[in-house]
Write a protein that binds this DNA or RNA. Structure first.
Lengths: 134, 134
DNA sequence: CCATTACGATTACACCTGTAATCTGAATAG
DNA sequence: CTATTCAGATTACAGGTGTAATCGTAATGG
């Protein structure tokens, strides 16, 4: 059973994580726990956000069960509840299911056509395949 | 330059195509041109939609520049303006950029871990890589 | 003890999306 | 010529998303 109909990108809570929220998650996957201010430090630059925006996103992520909060005096420390690999795996599967009927090979073909594959990528993929076959 | 900052999934119009809209596009990529009724024939079953829903999606897609209309008596014939390969390529690139820093190899690794790669897939990917190296 | 700060919580609000019902005008049946 | 039908257009409306301002409260400086 390679194709899975039900989507479920990260389990924990099962709620979908939006694009903006994802940026916040990335910051916390890179390092955690962090305070809201620290997260902002990381993402506000890149995305042109202000603190309130980050606060909102953090709250929504907590609601969605994607982050845990741990009180630290007057503030919160935020920690991811879903692993990056779970999220990434889920999103990848979603794409492959939606666009390629669940088959990864056509995806690779497209990436190749789009020149998204460098020679290094090709070498690395071959290495991966070798390992997989073992 | 493997990583592209600007997103641009299908060019024509540049507007993003939503999930529901994508289902309609698929029907028209499979065969075109088609009338709204014909499209509904294809998708209403699968998605549990009614005609009005399909009409709305078709209209939005026309607005977004993803579909062309060609009057046929009282009704319209709809034809995709963006190629499926362009859409699929764009979406794939978006995912790879967003989650894997633009590198395809880690994506493959994840698909492998998630067991989304069958032995057939692996064989086919190897074949693709061989061709690419030529 | 009081004024200011620094947080998280609440509220805001416009746009997008999913999902339709209703309107309007033209073709067609009688 | 008129009533019905059928197509696209307009409107609807709740929930999600991006992006924030404001509120309430607890700590902190003086």
């Amino acid at each position: 059973m390679t194709t899975r109909t039900e989507d479920q990108q990260g389990d924990a809570g099962g709620e979908r994580i939006s694009d903006a929220e994802h940026a916040v998650m990335e910051a916390l996957w890179k390092r955690s726990p962090q305070t809201a201010a620290e997260v902002c430090e990381t993402v506000c630059k890149d995305r042109g956000w202000s603190m309130p925006t980050v606060k909102t996103l953090l709250s929504r992520l907590v609601q969605k069960g994607a982050l845990a909060t741990q009180p630290d005096g007057r503030r919160f420390l935020y920690t991811p509840l879903i692993a990056r690999s779970a999220y990434v795996g889920g999103e990848s599967r979603r794409l492959v299911d939606r666009l390629f009927g669940g088959r990864a090979a056509p995806l690779l073909a497209h990436l190749a056509q789009e020149e998204a594959l460098s020679p290094d990528d090709i070498a690395e993929i071959e290495r991966l395949l070798q390992e997989m076959k073992k």
